[in-house]
Amino acid sequence: MVSPTGDFDVARASDVLAAALDRPGGAAMVLGALGEIAGVQFEPEQPGKLFRRGAPARLTVGDWQFITSGPADVRVQVCHAVRGVALQTMTAGPAEASRRLAEELFALTDSGGSDAAMQTQAALYGIAAINEM
């Protein structure tokens, strides 16, 4: 997802992510694939137990958290949390969520060094390949 000028292509990354999020189970796949990037925090889905409530998968990139809404739900909970306090929480469709996610990935690659940039590119190309299957 590199533009002709060699920069991170936010629009193209957003399109790839939106196409993946729009598939059933796509949100969990996208968050899991991006969870391997250095500087990103990923908490996998925790199934509920007798005395413990389950927790959906959660990806934290910068000040933004992306939380799955359910296996059949293509929407994603997008939360702007600064220093542990949620300033804004919204339920976003694939287009809106992917745009925010792409912007945060761009910010991460811009400041996170070559490792983060390479891992982001690898994850996005992997997601693009799954989209074409």
Binding site: D63, L87, Q88
Partner: peptide, 8 residues
């Protein structure tokens, strides 16, 4: 937090 809101 205020600056983060402005940036957002």
């Amino acid at each position: 937090r205020m600056q983060a809101e402005a940036e957002r």
